[in-house]
């Protein structure tokens, strides 16, 4: 994977330019615009309509407490960014929310129902789907097969029914149609029959996101969707994430790039050392002293660079 640093500046240029055919194409409605204006940015603050609620979620590895989240609500239909310095516990928290890891204590509710101890594979049918920090394209399956795998309610996925083609052919055709539609939307149609292993890193990110959409999720959890992706493709990915919101889906994503966070997120949750240290709108979060301290006080993570003129902050003055 390539480093992010040179990428950031170019992205910044593109964003600042604000024009271009690509930029215009990427305009999407924001159904939750203005929703967060009156919400106070304190950790654990209540949201008007939370889709996901985490209470007292704690996970330790030996003596190290990786995640210790007191309370978090995630607003339905919004794009929520989860940021924090390296080692803050973002991915571990993601794994806990998606059933890929088990919390020592705590409760997670999805749409008001508890999902504590629910196996990860059962969450897709409840409307939650995730992607991974290290992209998981299924190399020796074609891009189209990758997509078809994501679809729900496939009778042909039972061994007995699989033996008799007429029992699954019709559903398979529907699935293929759905898959081709999504591939078209993600500009991957020309790659349909290629092995996913032959795609570039950025294309794999696209396939993974498109494949996740095959499950028709309510809640999409993206773990570093822009990592190692070139600037042009980053713009395209951002557009696709905004498109998810326009379709009334909820998005939670982990990201290091503050330009990306500011560009697309409605709400930002900041983690450090396993805890949620701040919440707020992207505009307010850069001014938050706790956030600045967490980033610059401990690890000097270069990803949170507030030198951009749009959002002056203590960090740039310091």
């Amino acid at each position: 994977m390539t480093g992010n640093e040179p990428t950031n500046e170019i992205v910044l240029g593109v964003t600042a330019g604000g024009g271009g055919a690509a930029g215009a194409e990427m305009e999407h409605d924001n159904p939750v615009a203005g929703l967060f204006d009156d919400i106070e940015g304190t950790p654990g603050v209540a949201k008007p309509d939370p889709i996901l609620v985490a209470k007292g979620v704690r996970r330790s590895f030996g003596g190290l407490v990786a995640v210790d989240v007191d309370y978090l609500e995630v607003q339905r239909g919004a794009i929520t960014a989860l940021i924090g310095p390296n080692g803050a516990g973002k991915t571990t928290f993601f794994n806990l929310l998606t059933g890929f890891d088990k919390a020592d204590t705590g409760h997670v509710e999805l749409n008001g129902d508890s999902i504590d101890g629910v196996a990860s594979y059962k969450l897709a049918s409840r409307g939650m789907v995730r992607t991974f920090q290290l992209t998981k394209a299924l190399s020796k399956l074609s891009v189209l097969e990758n997509m078809k795998l994501g679809a729900k309610d496939q009778g042909g996925e039972s061994m007995a029914k699989a033996l008799i083609t007429p029992l699954w052919r019709r559903r398979e055709n529907e699935v293929e149609e759905q898959a081709r539609g999504l591939l078209d939307r993600f500009n991957l149609t020309h790659m349909s029959d290629e092995f996913a292993g032959t795609l570039s890193g950025g294309q794999r990110k696209l396939v993974e996101m498109a494949r996740a959409l095959m499950t028709d999720p309510e809640l999409v959890m993206l773990d570093e969707p822009m990592a190692g992706v070139n600037p042009a493709l980053t713009q395209s990915l951002l557009g696709h994430v905004k498109q998810l919101r326009a379709e009334k889906r909820t998005v939670i994503f982990v990201e290091h790039d503050m330009d990306v966070v500011r560009d697309i997120s409605d709400w930002v949750v900041v983690m450090a050392e396993g805890r949620i240290i701040a919440e707020g709108t992207p505009e307010s979060i850069g001014k938050n002293q706790a956030v600045v301290d967490a980033y610059l006080g401990s690890s000097h993570d270069s990803a949170l660079d507030f030198s951009d003129d749009d959002t002056p902050s203590e960090a740039s003055d310091a």
């Binding site: 998606t98 299924l138 020796k140 009778g155 996925e157 061994m159 699989a162």
Partner: peptide, 26 residues
């Protein structure tokens, strides 16, 4: 027959990456 069916597709996907398959609800 099995390997050209959706069942076989899940097996091949597991061979490539099991976590991805679980995340997609299998």
């Amino acid at each position: 027959q099995l390997m050209r069916s959706p069942w076989g597709r899940v097996l091949k996907a597991i061979r490539e990456d099991e976590d991805a398959v679980r995340a997609l609800g299998k």
